[in-house]
């Protein structure tokens, strides 16, 4: 589903990703952990080309994103993204946030987009907030709307960039619940997070990154209980 080969990314002289090779299979939930500055967010952002790639290749269902002839907008319709800062459109109501892309990109008629949007809001438990503006929602509610908005494009892959890091602790659970449901439905997911509990419970595989490299990857039980690398052990001892 996703194939990352020899991915390199530099910001000026600062090499953030050094040589990343990762494969994500269909319906797999991959959790990326690591200290801040390890490049995990940049890695995630390279998967839908929010960052221009310096070297290497990213393939989504066999399509090479670094190929100049690839229509990146079309690829992005298949790859949903949820951001740490939610990035809801503040000038639009909740339902308008969700309807916008399906209507403009997929040319879905308004009433159909609205019906779909309401269904998604029901799914994330916010049907009653359809006509509210994002500013009136709590952080957890905003993030659930952001997830619904991404799902409205019916993506095959969902990317989560520290989706709970900007939330008050009591709101983390409601967002993780939605993500767990999504994983159960068989969504292919790549999640950058500091929620180790979520990684253990939902992740099919955990990737530990540090210094722009994948240091170790394994099924959660193995990686958390029997880390092989010193850097993994040092990181886990700090966060667990």
């Amino acid at each position: 589903m996703i194939q990352v080969k020899n991915l390199k990314k530099s910001f000026g002289k600062n090499e953030v990703l050094k040589d990343i090779n990762v494969t994500v299979k269909n319906k797999e939930v991959v959790v990326v952990i690591g200290p801040s500055g390890s490049g995990k967010s940049t890695f995630l952002r390279c998967i839908n080309m929010l960052e221009t790639i310096t070297g290497g290749h990213v393939y989504i269902e066999g399509v090479d994103l670094t190929d100049k002839n690839t229509d990146i907008n079309k690829v992005r319709t298949e790859v949903g993204m949820v951001f740490q800062q939610f990035n809801l459109f503040p000038h639009k109501t909740v339902i308008e946030n969700i309807m916008l892309a399906p209507m403009k990109v997929r040319n879905i008629p308004k009433d159909q987009a609205k019906a779909k949007g309401l269904e998604l809001l029901r799914k994330v438990g916010l049907e009653d907030k359809a006509e509210a503006f994002p500013d009136s929602l709590s952080g957890g509610q905003k993030q659930r709307v952001a997830i619904a908005r991404a799902l409205a494009m019916e993506p095959k892959i969902m990317l989560f960039d520290e989706p709970t890091s900007a939330l008050d602790p009591e709101m983390v659970g409601e967002v993780l619940e939605v993500m767990k449901d999504l994983a159960k439905e068989g969504m292919t997911m790549v999640v950058v997070t500091h929620e180790m509990g979520f990684a253990k419970e939902v992740g099919d595989r955990v990737i530990f990154m540090d210094g722009g490299l994948v240091i170790e990857e394994n099924i959660p039980s193995e990686l958390f209980d029997h880390p092989q690398e010193e850097r993994t052990k040092a990181f886990l001892s700090k966060v667990l």
């Binding site: 907008n73 079309k74 992005r76 319709t77 949903g80 951001f83 459109f89 916008l100 892309a101």
Partner: peptide
Amino acid sequence: DRGQMEAARSLGMNHVQSMRFVILPQAFK
């Protein structure tokens, strides 16, 4: 905020659509 453009683009909207429906209405205000 840069995140607005990123969110719009990540939903598959092209640059012009993102400007027109997301950035400019907010900037105009």
